[in-house]
């Protein structure tokens, strides 16, 4: 796993973005950018250069699930690893995210250990 990879963190709450950024830094990932919802995230993703997307689900403007679907529909972003970090805990929503092609799903509140475990697993699979 490349520790210099560029990670986009998308959440409408700035506190959560800071928490995730700090946890990522603790795990050795310092190259992070932020967006506050899908609408601001998508242009950043389309510009290219993002290696990993960590997104919330429930956001104004464009929700995380729609951002995920938009990525999968875009030839250049179809393979982008996406980790969803969300308070949405409905079974049907988790299934919807899985069907949309999410690579990992973390429910809030979560621990630093969970974040590490899921990221390791995602990049282990991708190789």
């Amino acid at each position: 796993m490349n520790k210099d990879m560029k990670i986009l963190v998308v959440d409408d709450f700035s506190t959560m973005r800071r928490i995730i950024k700090n946890l990522l830094r603790d795990l050795g990932f310092t190259n992070t950018v932020e967006a506050d919802d899908g609408l601001t995230a998508l242009p950043i993703l389309k510009q290219g250069g993002i290696d990993f997307l960590v997104t919330d689900w429930n956001m104004p403007g464009m929700e995380g699930i729609d951002l995920l679907k938009a990525c999968r529909a875009d030839a250049k972003l179809a393979k982008l690893p996406v980790l969803m970090v969300t308070a949405e805990q409905k079974r049907e929503q988790i299934i919807e995210a899985a069907q949309a092609g999410v690579n990992g799903y973390i429910v809030k509140p979560f621990t630093a250990a969970t974040l590490k475990e899921k990221i390791d697993k995602i990049f282990e699979r991708i190789g």
């Binding site: 709450f13 506190t15 959560m16 700090n22 603790d26 809030k108 509140p109 630093a112």
Partner: peptide, 16 residues
């Protein structure tokens, strides 16, 4: 300090 950082996740949950 990491524990303090993680404790701030209440803001996102309670905000929603």
């Amino acid at each position: 300090l990491n524990e303090v950082l993680m404790a701030q996740d209440f803001q996102d949950i309670t905000g929603q």
